[in-house]
Amino acid sequence: MNTAEPEKPTVVDVNLPDSSVTPVEVHQPVGRTAAGAAPLVMLWPGFGMGASYYRPIARELAARGYPVATGELRGQGASTARATRAGRWGYHDLAAEDYPRTIRAVKSHLSLLVDHPTVLLTHSMGGQVGVLFLARDDARELNVRGLFGVGSGSPHLPTFPTPMRRRLRLGTILLGRIGGSLGFWPGKVAGWDPVGYGRQSGQHMAEWRRLALHNTFAELGGADLDYPAAMREVELPVLLTRFANDLDCPRASSTALAEHLPKAGLRIEELAGDLGHNRWARQPQVTADRFERFLVDNDISAVR
C-alpha cells in the first residue's frame, strides 16, 4: 500500500434525463504520473446506501494508484432524484442512463479517453444493475473490462435461510407490491421505516420483487433490448465475493445472480474475515487486496 495520502475527492455533477443530478465523488490516484496510468475503478453502492459510506475503500484504492469514482443509485445518497407517482425509474434506467452517463462524465473530468479501461466495483444492488450494464453496447464502448462484486447477489427468495427470507418476503410486499401499486415506496410510514431502505421508486421495487420471486430480469420497464438474452452472451471476467457472515448475501444468492451470465469468466469466492455485508467498505484492506489480484489475474491494465 502507498503510504501517501490521497487528495480530497472532487465532485462531478451528472445530469440525468429526468432532470435530476447525481453528484459523483472522484478520487485522484496517488503515486502515478497520471490518472491514465491505471484502470478507472467505478464504484456503485448497494440498496439504500449513499456514496459517502464508501469513502474509505475509495481512498484506499486511490492510495494504491487507481483513479476511483463513486456513483449514486438514483434517489439515494446525494442524488437529487425523488421517487413520486410520476417520477419513476427501474433497473433499465439505471443500466442504460445512470451507469454510462456517470462513467463518461468521470472520464471527461479526468481527461481520460472514452475507451479507457474501466472496472466496476459493485456492492449488493449495484451489482444487480452492473450485470445488466455489462450486456449493453455502452459497456463495450466505455471498455468495461470486468466486474468485481462484494455482497452482490440476487434477492431470489429460495436462496436465503428462513429468518432473512421472511424479511425479504416482507420487502416484496411493502416495497414491491404496495410501492409498485402506489408508484413509489415512501420510506417512512407514521415516522417509521419498517424496511430500512428509505424512499424508493415503485417501478424499481416492482422489478426487484419479480427478481426476488422468479430470479428474472425479463420485461424491465422501458427496456430497449432483451436483457436476459444479452446477458447470456457476456464473456467478461466477473468475481462475486462475500464474507462468511454476510446474511444479506448468502453464497446461493451470488450463485443465482451468476446464473444470468453463463458465458462470463465468473467465480464466486468467500473473503477472509467477518466484515459482513457492509463493513468491508469501511475496513477496506482485505477487499482492496483481492480486487488488485483480480486485476492482475485478468490482465486488466491501462498501460498500453
Rank of each mutant, 00 (worst) to 15 (best):
L175C: 02
G176Y: 05
R177E: 15
R177I: 02
I178C: 11
I178W: 14
I178F: 12
G179S: 01
G180F: 02
G180V: 03
S181W: 14
G183V: 06
F184P: 00
W185F: 13
P186S: 03
G187M: 10
G187N: 09
K188P: 02
V189Y: 11
A190D: 14
G191L: 11
D193G: 09
D193F: 05
P194E: 09
P194A: 09
P194H: 06
P194R: 03
G196D: 10
G196W: 05
G196N: 11
G196L: 10
Y197S: 13
R199S: 12
R199N: 04
R199V: 02
Q200D: 00
Q203P: 01
H204T: 02
H204V: 01
M205A: 02
A206N: 03
A206H: 03
E207F: 06
E207M: 10
R210L: 13
L211M: 15
A212H: 00
A212S: 12
L213K: 04
L213H: 11
H214P: 00
N215I: 05
N215K: 08
N215W: 05
N215Y: 08
T216K: 06
T216S: 15
T216W: 05
F217T: 00
A218N: 10
E219L: 12
G221D: 15
G222D: 09
G222C: 09
G222F: 04
D224S: 11
L225G: 10
L225W: 08
L225P: 01
Y227E: 15
Y227Q: 08
A229K: 14
A229E: 15
A230T: 05
A230I: 08
A230E: 15
A230N: 08
M231V: 08
M231Q: 13
R232W: 03
R232F: 04
E233G: 03
L236Q: 13
L236S: 12
P237I: 06
L240Y: 10
T241P: 08
R242C: 10
R242A: 15
R242N: 14
F243W: 07
N245W: 02
D246E: 02
C249P: 02
C249G: 02
P250C: 09
P250E: 12
P250Q: 09
P250Y: 07
R251D: 13
R251E: 15
R251G: 13
R251N: 10
R251A: 14
A252W: 01
A252L: 13
